[in-house]
């Protein structure tokens, strides 16, 4: 069934879209855009290390992305503003990752694939990893949804209800690292943040509740995957960036609709 490379790409893209959309909503609500960026950029270092030690790329990416996210969480509020801290960590981890990759002779050609994704080369094995990771993220989020929302609103409110905001933050961090790792193959580390943010932002004007925003974001992300792959197939454009472009166009329409509605 998955013989056709385009079909495999579509299934892979849908899997990532499904997981990235709800996490993307939290990234938007909690103003963690740069945090998502830093986590994603760190993943390239994970890829390099995984290749150097002969480990699965997914494992390396998850491990380093998670490490990065935890580092940022623990360093925040210790003298540097979050903005500065993330700026330093996001770009230096990307730089270290690129340098590390350069030590691996046979990987140099594939660098673009890790930076911008290589969705058309997704194998059936990749599909298993992507959907496994994506479903894990969705299950995690559904399980912790109420607690995550409460913590996002106000950590003290969560405390008073007997929740532990730190634990919920950890859940979110773990989910984010997983999404980053499964999205590398589809859009690459440089554009993962776009796949998180753009569908969520596009869904906002049409949603009255958090749940509807997350669902709509998933629909937008899937539509972007389908449209991007279509354009890529017929116009021979790079697939990952085409998907992000499609999402950006959907966001533009959504914003336009919002301003027309507000003017009326």
């Amino acid at each position: 069934m998955f013989d056709d490379f385009l079909l495999r790409a579509l299934v892979a893209g849908f899997g990532v879209a499904l997981a990235a959309a709800p996490i993307g909503c939290f990234v938007v609500w909690r103003r963690m855009a740069y945090f998502g960026d830093a986590t994603a950029h760190a993943a390239i270092l994970g890829v390099a290390l995984a290749l150097a030690f002969g480990l699965p790329v997914f494992t390396g990416a998850v491990a380093v992305a998670l490490l990065m996210a935890l580092t940022v969480s623990s360093l925040s509020g210790r003298g540097y503003s979050m903005d500065t801290l993330l700026g330093v960590l996001a770009h230096s981890s990307l730089a270290f990752g690129l340098v590390a990759v350069s030590f691996l002779q046979d990987v140099r050609i594939d660098l673009m694939a890790y930076l911008f994704g290589d969705i058309l080369a997704v194998t059936t094995g990749d599909l298993g990893v992507i959907w496994g990771g994506a479903l894990a993220v969705v299950v995690l989020l559904v399980w912790r949804w109420q607690a995550l929302l409460t913590t996002t609103l106000n950590p003290d409110l969560a405390c008073a209800s007997g929740l532990d905001p730190k634990r919920e933050q950890l859940v979110l961090t773990l989910a984010l690292a997983l999404v980053v790792a499964v999205a590398i193959k589809v859009v690459g580390v440089l554009l993962i943040a776009a796949l998180l943010l753009v569908p969520a932002a596009a869904a906002r004007p049409f949603a009255a509740t958090p749940e509807r925003m997350a669902l709509l974001a998933a629909v937008v992300a899937m539509a972007a995957v389908a449209a991007g792959l279509g354009v890529s197939f017929y116009q021979d454009t790079p697939a990952g960036p085409s998907i992000v472009c499609a999402a950006a166009v959907l966001f533009a329409f959504s914003s336009l609709w919002r301003s027309i509605r507000n003017a009326a």
Binding site: V28, W29, R30, R31, Q146, A147, L149, T150, T152, L153, A158, S161, L163, A200, A201, R204, A207, A208, T209, P210, R212, M213
Partner: peptide, 15 residues
């Protein structure tokens, strides 16, 4: 955050 859509009814159902 203005990006978080939330009705009163939904808010009261948290957590």
């Amino acid at each position: 955050d203005p990006t978080l859509p939330l009705t009163v009814g939904r808010f009261l159902s948290l957590p």
